[in-house]
Design a binder for these strands. Structure first.
Lengths: 369, 369
DNA sequence: CTGAAAGCGCTAACAA
DNA sequence: TTGTTAGCGCTTTCAG
């Protein structure tokens, strides 16, 4: 069995004690220049790499802390994101990372409070899904000013100094939606987009991408862009009105997860000639896929987003790896035939996650296997 | 800051020994139902969370070896796969993993020799893309018999005892191809499939999926399935003949990477009414995307395949995590609008990775045997 | 079935 | 200036 070189081996070869090796390696006081160099040389020669787990264990505290603040609702989205983060955290724990998880109930709620409390800890990095840019941006800047690397997830925080953003490229999502729609409906149709709030970066960019692709290569005209403000009621009403007003409408792009009200309105109007491009995936959407109302869905892959966010942060902290300021994942495309291959549709199967390190006093809903 | 509760504290409160606590927590044998429950309860009550650094230290072999044998050609595919493996290897190196990379020049060549030489090392795991099942299967079985966990990548090795396979689900690829085609061409068209060798699992399954989806929900009829045996010449000739014979042919699914000869034949025949569904992506395909000959490509994501294969192996070795016997990735769908978001089209593959990378990760700057 | 104890590689406190 | 040693919390082996 391959033996990894450790302090002991260096000590043996350099003919000193293990304590001396430690002193040399960490530029601690109380060692002569000569022996230090000797030790450093043999360490170099042997290609020594520290065992970070052992170090973390010895110093008693974690190697470093990373804070996470994401919403809990909407569950079928953020549960995946959390799983992605936690799965990666399990690996990172092997090198001494520890996670502090401080979710907010829903996007934008209690952001101020949770984020501030997070900054009281001695963080090296922070993952946050920004809700209200106005409250989050200053906190992000404060964190970065203190050397805490901030990674925005899912949506960007414009005008902040965040180190990076991880998301499924929103502009591309919009373009994909337009391209797919052009395959599904007649070329001279009217189409519409239903979105959340256009002032959030994410939705603005989705609509922008949608428009630009429409303009670029199809005859379809964008009848309107509706803001539904994440309200089911509003989504439903506005769709109803839209359908009444426009008989030549054959496609709708829903940029939020809020597609069910739209489906309902469609059914109400008996408009089977209208195709939907939706966003993300959850079990209740499946019937609409099967009957063809939803032609495709743009999948933002929250699991991978979470995984990636933590990964770039950990790589950065451990080996100063540079972080690309924008990590945009390629959005997935959900169709009828691959529907069952997305974990979201297997709603029930929530294997309890153990193994995530949380500090005492956290909500630790975990079973240990 | 409270002290975290550990095995010791649980043992004290449950009035048992620390060894017993461990047995209870991990469902290990040799403990009575009664004590197990008692321990589990107090663990729950105390909100125990394991110290993962300590676990890693205790269980982690100080170092271990993992062997890799994949082809070098076709470069634009296997370079990605290698990058995925190496990127993940860089992380795993932090916990003592070491990689032995022994590629074969192309699929099936020198498999016997390279794999055997790999087995001379003291491996804990092996990643292999099986070319000739007849030569690989026995080697895999021999490895597994010696406790080496084997993960097949990209294609399975049927009838072997391999621990797991990682691939982009081939059956699903075929189904997706059929579904996409049905969006692109008239419903009563003839379609064809061009494949490599049907005796390889991978291609057989792709064609199977293609057929099953065609049968299931479209009027299209499968005119024929051509075996081109990975030969450019043969691909070209057979496509030429196919086009001459069938005027109602409007769609072709190319299950291999060998789509250029097909595109050529199409151009030769001036058949702009035929749409292609291809497999994977490389720069030379781009013009055919732009002029619409290729309607979509099924992307097998070799980078993630490589990453995943190594990851499951390392997780297994380090913490005995179970390996799912089949890890099938959801194949990607390449269209016009997301074309530029695949790293493959940035042929050189170096600089362009800031604002438009689909996955994070540096190219591995890793020295390997 | 249960307890005791030896490490895993490293840090830090104490001796020499 | 150097060497020695006791843990960190967990797994694992060996006795009882």
């Amino acid at each position: 069995m391959l033996k990894r070189v450790g302090l002991h081996e260096i000590a043996r070869q350099a003919q000193v004690s293990i304590g001396t090796v430690d002193r040399a390696l960490h530029s601690r006081p109380g060692i002569s220049e000569a022996t230090r160099n000797k030790v450093l040389e043999t360490a170099e020669k042997l290609g020594y790499t520290p065992n970070l787990a052992a170090r973390a264990l010895a110093v008693g505290r974690s190697g470093f802390l990373i804070g996470v603040c994401i919403p809990e609702e909407i569950h079928h989205f953020f549960d995946q994101m959390r799983d992605g983060i936690f799965d990666e955290a399990r690996r990172a724990a092997r090198v001494g990372m520890e996670l502090i998880y401080r979710p907010v109930p829903r996007l934008g709620e209690f952001e101020q409070r949770e984020l501030s409390s997070l900054l009281d800890e001695d963080l090296r990095g922070l993952i946050v899904m920004p809700g209200n840019p106005r409250v989050v941006a200053p906190i992000i800047d404060a964190a970065e000013a203190r050397g805490i690397r901030v990674v925005c997830i899912c949506s960007d925080a414009p005008h902040s100094r965040r180190t990076a953003v991880v998301y499924a490229n929103p502009n591309l999502q919009g373009r994909l939606a337009a391209e797919l729609l052009s395959k599904f409906i007649p070329g001279d149709s009217d189409v519409a987009a239903i979105t959340g709030m256009l002032r959030t970066e994410e939705h603005r960019q989705k609509v922008e991408g949608f428009q630009s692709r429409l303009a670029q290569c199809s005859e379809m005209t964008l009848a309107c862009v509706l803001e539904a403000h994440e309200s089911e009621e509003e989504s439903y009403q506005k769709t109803m009105d839209l359908l009444s007003d426009n008989a030549n409408l054959h496609g709708i792009y829903v940029t939020t997860v809020n597609c069910l009200p739209v489906c309902l309105a469609l059914r109400e109007h008996r408009r089977t000639d209208v195709r939907l491009i939706t966003t993300d995936l959850f079990p209740q959407m499946v019937p609409y896929f099967e009957n063809g109302i939803i032609g495709a869905s743009i999948y933002q892959d929250p699991y991978t987003q979470g995984q990636t966010a933590l990964k770039v942060l950990v790589d950065h902290v451990i080996e100063k790896a540079p972080i690309a300021s924008s990590n945009s994942l390629n959005p997935g495309i959900v169709l009828q035939s691959n529907l069952n291959f997305f974990r979201e549709v297997h709603s029930a199967g929530i294997g309890a996650r153990d193994l995530t390190t949380m500090r005492t006093g956290e909500r630790a809903a975990l079973s240990v296997g």
